[in-house]
């Protein structure tokens, strides 16, 4: 779209849907959990696209779908100019090099029986990128240094490291193959405050040096604000608002984004901000509400919101929102 360079955008996602079938009881009706219900966006080279939302909104399914780790129901994923939506597992094999993931739980995502060297070397060996085992070793050491670990760490096992160090090992592994896109799914939410900032700084630094492109998924809006260039807010499998970072945080338009931002406790005890407290819980993605999916919890709910799901309202070329409050305005003008 806006891409003027010769190289295509690292990632274009068009109307992506992932439904999980569920059947309640043996003879129950077949229903679907609509984990992703028509998601479209693209990420430009060198950009960090942040995705925020509460648990169950489909953030992690989005990560898995782009890495083709779940079956797509419909839609397109174009990675580096190549449409991978219908690729089989064997067709995906060479493509996997280009997408790497950093997982949420550094305690569960590293094999406890492997040394750090073997963990970081595994992608290099699978994809056969090094000529000799000596070259693999050299590359492993280089990667460990890049993420702030020492050479002697290579022979240790994951359990000998703290949470922050384990996350560094996971980052080293994800960078081993010079990926085009790094998907980070809640990479700092399992870490302590003082360690979280270390890992966030590392991710920004690596991005600068290695010209990485991130899809950064998190539930913490302040973390996403810090790291992202552009942000998408998800609710029940859909984006409700997508914008460049500054505009989204300075001028949140969707009532859900406004509520999320107002719910964050500030560390200034003197600050008294107006809090929008949302009633109720996220509805079940099996029986999502009609019309706008947010309407049962929305304080600006109008009759039309219950009937019709809102179309995309373009506010600026970088900021768009799915809400009837803004489509109404368009009509009047």
């Amino acid at each position: 779209m806006i891409q003027k360079n010769k190289s295509p955008a690292p990632l274009i996602v068009k109307d992506l849907k992932v439904y999980y079938p569920v059947r309640r009881g043996l003879f129950g009706k077949l229903q679907h959990v609509k984990a992703l219900d028509g998601v479209s966006f693209e990420i430009a080279k060198g950009e960090t696209f942040g995705v925020v939302g509460e648990s169950g909104c489909g953030k992690s399914t989005l990560a898995l779908a782009i890495a083709k780790l779940v079956k797509l129901t419909s839609g397109q994923i174009i990675l580096d100019g190549e449409d991978i939506s219908h690729y089989s597992a064997s067709q995906m094999q060479p493509v996997r090099k280009k997408i790497q993931m950093i997982f949420q739980d550094p305690y569960a995502s590293l094999n406890p029986r492997m040394t750090v060297r073997d963990i970081v070397a595994e992608p290099l060996i699978i994809h056969n990128v090094c000529k000799s085992s000596k070259e693999v070793d050299e590359k492993v050491i280089e990667l460990l240094r890049q993420v702030g670990l020492d050479d002697y760490h290579a022979n240790r096992y994951a359990h000998q490291f703290s949470g922050g160090q384990r996350q560094r090992i996971g980052i080293a592994r994800s960078l081993a193959l010079d990926p085009i896109l790094v998907i980070a799914d809640e990479p700092v939410s399992a870490l302590d405050v003082s360690i979280q900032s270390q890992v966030l700084n590392l991710l920004s630094e690596l991005k600068k040096h290695m010209h990485l492109t991130y899809l950064f998924i998190a539930h913490d809006l302040s973390v996403v604000e810090h790291i992202s260039d552009r942000v998408g807010v998800m609710y029940l499998g859909e984006f409700v608002e997508v914008s460049d970072r500054d505009d989204l945080y300075n001028r949140p338009l969707h009532p859900y984004t406004q509520a999320l931002l107002s719910a964050i406790p500030s560390i200034d005890p003197e600050e008294k901000k107006e809090r929008i407290i949302l009633e109720g819980n996220i509805p079940s993605p099996i029986n999502a509400p009609s019309g706008c999916k947010f309407h049962p919890r929305c304080r600006h709910c109008m009759p039309i919101c219950k009937e019709l799901s809102p179309k995309k309202s373009v506010i600026t070329d970088k900021h768009y929102v799915y809400c009837h409050l803004y489509t109404e305005k368009d009509k009047k003008e």
Partner: peptide
């Protein structure tokens, strides 16, 4: 200093070095 705060946009976060 090390937690990201809403509305405060810094290049780099302050970090406490090392581990517990």
């Amino acid at each position: 200093a090390s937690i990201p705060k809403l509305g405060e946009r810094v290049e780099e976060l302050y970090t406490i070095p090392g581990n517990v």
